[in-house]
Amino acid sequence: MNFTLDSCIAVLILTVSLTYLIHITMTVVPNTQHHYDDSLIILGRLLRYYDIQAAIYTNNSESVDVIMYSTISHLHSYYLVVIDPEKETVVLICGTPTLSSYLVSITIPGWNGTLNPRTLCFRVGVGG
């Protein structure tokens, strides 16, 4: 009888754990899709203005921060990494590190008439 009780409890624990795992998996998958659309919309809108390019090419993270928060809701955060694709180095990192996955990326060719490409990896979402 003791053996039966032990096995029952063990299987119950297993059941709850498996159920929780399935639940987490099913709730996380749709959320990751949302961020791509939102991030592309925000980044696409910002790149229509000169200000964000000026902030990126002058490595002004303070400026990037206020520009981002003048575009997104104050309930959301963002994460932006600027990469120099020619030197393969990270130039600038701004925002909340918890949003550092599932980034969308766009390469801009240059600024002020110069060929100086920068790859922007960006995500907007709820975090931090």
């Binding site: 949302h34 939102d38 925000i42």
Partner: peptide, 12 residues
């Protein structure tokens, strides 16, 4: 729309 942000009439 599934997104939180979306374009409406040229504005986010």
């Amino acid at each position: 729309s599934k997104s939180v942000y979306f374009i409406h009439n040229g504005t986010i």
